[in-house]
Design a protein around this nucleic acid. Sequence first.
DNA 1: ACCCGTTCTGCTCATCTGAGCAGGTCGTGC
DNA 2: GCACGACCTGCTCAGATGAGCAGAACGGGT
Lengths: 334, 334
Amino acid sequence: MAPADSTAANELLAVRAAELYYEENKTQDEIGAILRVTRWKVGRLLAQARERGIIRIEIVHPRARRLALERDLAARFGLKDAVVVPAPGDDTELQARVSEAAADWLVSHRPVPRLLGVSWGRTLHQVADALPSGWSTAVNVVQINGGVSLSKRPGTAAATAVMIAQKAGGQATLLPSPAILERLETKKAIEGDRTVAGVLGMARGASAYLYSAGVADTSSVHVDSGYLTPADITRLVERGAVGDVIGRYITAEGTIADPELDARTLGLGLEELRAAPWSILVIGGEAKHPVARAIVTHGLCSVLVTDEHTARALLDEPDAALTDSATTSREDLS
Amino acid sequence: MAPADSTAANELLAVRAAELYYEENKTQDEIGAILRVTRWKVGRLLAQARERGIIRIEIVHPRARRLALERDLAARFGLKDAVVVPAPGDDTELQARVSEAAADWLVSHRPVPRLLGVSWGRTLHQVADALPSGWSTAVNVVQINGGVSLSKRPGTAAATAVMIAQKAGGQATLLPSPAILERLETKKAIEGDRTVAGVLGMARGASAYLYSAGVADTSSVHVDSGYLTPADITRLVERGAVGDVIGRYITAEGTIADPELDARTLGLGLEELRAAPWSILVIGGEAKHPVARAIVTHGLCSVLVTDEHTARALLDEPDAALTDSATTSREDLS
DNA sequence: ACCCGTTCTGCTCATCTGAGCAGGTCGTGC
DNA sequence: GCACGACCTGCTCAGATGAGCAGAACGGGT
């Protein structure tokens, strides 16, 4: 190896070259004249400076993306696509950016889905909002899980689906049913209803699913909507639930946390999500890291739209194959 | 003007183009294919992105410099040269970087000074330390103000000068005298001494001066060395002193704060500094902003080596000459 | 002293990129 | 309805840049 002295001298030269090139907009030739080296050496110095991270290039824009993270996510979890946006400090702003990015993805995604299955929630509503009118032509929309009929703000679930369809000049088909039923028989009865069965059938044939996920805590929409009590949530958490996917609470291992409750939950199943050609998960924020990990590591989505912190959290975790990750996830419960 | 929609669409395109160009190292041609625009448009989008500040390029390195600030400083204060280094959080580190930058400047400065006049102090000592052995050939060094004979660490003033000379393979000539004398007669007597007069004469003929400056407070080396009492400092501050330059306390207006004290101070005068072809001020840190401003605005240095915060502080201050058009001149800087 | 592998240097050449220009597009005012 | 001007687009062409190569310089081992 060359003596340390020459390395250090080169590094200093590289810094000077970088300053002149990037801050002063000089050509490599001019820089060569100033630093008394050939222009080829200037080129090499700049290449070194870039490699060593002396030059930091950042794209500062709310709509910027983190392509490197996207590539890593797709490779690590076998995703068809990933979208990662920079995370602002503000959590509300973060949700907005992630939703906007999801809307962007939908707009530019080809082929355009003939029929889009959607869930509902705050995130999905923001995605709908962010979609430009006429974002596509004749995309029909179908709900894939029960709505919020008990909600304090009734109709938001329906409004989301309708808005998405309307803006694409298509029709929305709503699932006229609560998300979770109190009794299994009721659920079966509703499921057996011709209309409901028809919608579910249509939903199963959708060419893409768009959904978000909730956290298993008392701030959940399910509690808010009256479908679950705080006590239900506590029980779910005791059973290892990290959050819900289209109404179904799952554990870190990607399994149903409470089969009895799940049986009373109306809508598409996890397997249908997993089997779909395009299942797009839109999720952002620190609180959702555990659910996001559960979904992504168990193949429940094929496209992930998220923020860079979530992306890094997912990538930092050693591979799920390691057994002791189970014990680790238990600690989350305490 | 074009409709807002197209502007926004362009901005988004510009962001995508920037990502592909700077993060993915794609050519403008490839980007054009991806974004479905011509490669010329990609070039224009990138230019726009750069103009609008969407792309931020930063050089992260301890030896990096702030060339834009250097240019502004030189233009604003009529300096022959300026060196501005990025400021780390740590103040000790900052001093080290500024000193190192001063050493770098000396090493690469042409023509090499035949005789270099130096002051002393912590900063100067660090500069000496940072100089590489053999940084130049046959540069002789002469002290330009009295030393710290009363100091708790005697000899550091001498050591600084000697080290600088030694590393350049030259001779150091020391000024064998205290910095400030108690009585005017003593000062005159010493000044009249053949040796001292000879050194001072030599100092007046130096081709460059290298010095730092002290703050007018009780942490000053002069107090530490016993030349001044805290009470003296208080009196100086009352008279408007902001700090000392080669032992002489000056006000923000660039004038001698206390002529009586100044008369008892042995060494080069301010006028000699001002008249010198190369007078290099090495100064860094928040506390020294006022002295730095006094020196720089009154032409006492022709080369300034400092940190970016000090540089910005100097530049932010509206010009002393312009009273009401201060805001206008701010805009000019952008 | 000599050889060999590694790194560095300056070069050619093909490619990439920005400046500048002619023609097209759009909105505006008469 | 039409002409005008501002802006945008795609182009030519020259200058800037990176890949790849042959020879030089260097360091270490025998």
